[in-house]
Simulated scan of single mutants.
Amino acid sequence: MQHTGNTILITGGGSGIGQALAHRWHDAGNHVIITGRRRQALDAAIAGRPRMSAYVLDVTADDDVAAFARQVVADHPSLNVLVNNAGVYSAEKPTAQRDLGAAQRMIATNVLGPIRMIDALVDHLSRQAGAAIINVSSGLAFVPLPGAPTYSASKAAIHSYTAALRPLLAGKVEVIEIVPPQVQTELTPGQSQDPDSMPLAAFVDEVLALLQADPTPAEVCVERVRYFREAEAKGQFDQALQMLAQYS
């Protein structure tokens, strides 16, 4: 992946990891486009930053995604990088019958959202120089959090989808996965102040340093997430799962 001169589209770019990446890539000389559901957050994220644009978008709406893709390509024909970062999280207690609304929202946003975005833009990206698709998964894709089974499953699905897509687009579009640990964002209430979560700035620093490698790594795993990414291969899956069960 080239590091400057891109036109980068980031879903969920109005806060958290998406906003932090957007600002850092913008500082590096890229044009950055962000989307999200809240206009106020988007406007705050691009304030005072030339070469940044924002669009309100709900990635769970088929027609909205299709219309947005047509508009963003018309407005920014040099678009060459798609970052699927938008995601939602809900804790769950699946041990008794419950309302499945939260589970359905997570699948619609975290799984079908990236699939919709890729489908809407893959033809355009395949014609661009230096094209890349970056999907943001989670360490929970590899060891699930028992208290968040649907969220964990949604991120496992994105890992699998990304891996399957990579050989199909080889030679046309780089397909990269960013695997965060728990980071200080507001994905869950109070998480941005949690001392056990990785500071957001440190996470983005490490991600961008790893993306500088040539060739670009297929999976961008900061050191803090490697225990979970490698747990099964190292025979530590059950131990890691039991550790996460304490937080459920």
Score class of each variant (00 low, 15 high):
3 H>F: 09
7 T>K: 11
10 I>R: 01
11 T>P: 02
17 I>N: 02
17 I>T: 02
17 I>S: 03
19 Q>A: 08
19 Q>R: 15
19 Q>D: 10
20 A>V: 04
24 R>P: 01
24 R>T: 10
26 H>W: 04
31 H>K: 08
34 I>R: 00
34 I>M: 03
36 G>F: 02
37 R>C: 06
39 R>N: 07
40 Q>V: 14
44 A>E: 08
45 A>C: 09
46 I>A: 03
47 A>T: 13
48 G>R: 11
51 R>H: 15
52 M>F: 09
55 Y>Q: 05
55 Y>N: 06
55 Y>E: 11
61 A>P: 02
64 D>H: 10
68 F>H: 01
70 R>D: 15
70 R>M: 13
72 V>T: 05
73 V>M: 06
73 V>C: 04
78 S>C: 12
82 L>S: 00
82 L>K: 03
84 N>Q: 08
84 N>A: 04
86 A>Y: 00
88 V>E: 13
92 E>C: 07
95 T>S: 13
99 D>W: 10
99 D>L: 14
103 A>P: 03
104 Q>T: 15
107 I>T: 08
118 I>S: 01
118 I>R: 03
119 D>R: 12
121 L>F: 02
121 L>V: 02
126 S>Q: 08
129 A>M: 10
132 A>W: 00
134 I>R: 04
134 I>T: 06
135 N>T: 08
147 G>T: 07
147 G>W: 04
152 S>W: 01
154 S>G: 07
155 K>H: 10
157 A>V: 07
157 A>F: 03
160 S>M: 05
165 L>T: 02
167 P>C: 04
168 L>D: 06
172 K>C: 05
174 E>R: 06
174 E>G: 05
177 E>I: 02
180 P>F: 09
181 P>S: 14
184 Q>N: 12
184 Q>I: 11
185 T>W: 02
186 E>H: 13
188 T>Q: 14
188 T>N: 13
188 T>C: 11
190 G>T: 13
191 Q>P: 05
191 Q>V: 11
194 D>E: 13
194 D>Q: 13
195 P>I: 12
195 P>V: 11
196 D>W: 12
196 D>M: 15
197 S>K: 09
199 P>N: 12
200 L>K: 09
203 F>H: 04
205 D>R: 06
209 A>E: 10
210 L>V: 10
210 L>T: 09
212 Q>S: 13
219 E>S: 11
220 V>L: 08
220 V>I: 15
222 V>G: 07
225 V>T: 08
228 F>G: 00
229 R>Q: 07
230 E>G: 05
230 E>M: 09
230 E>Q: 11
231 A>N: 09
232 E>I: 00
234 K>L: 15
235 G>N: 12
236 Q>H: 12
238 D>E: 14
240 A>M: 08
243 M>Q: 08
244 L>W: 14
245 A>W: 06
248 S>R: 15
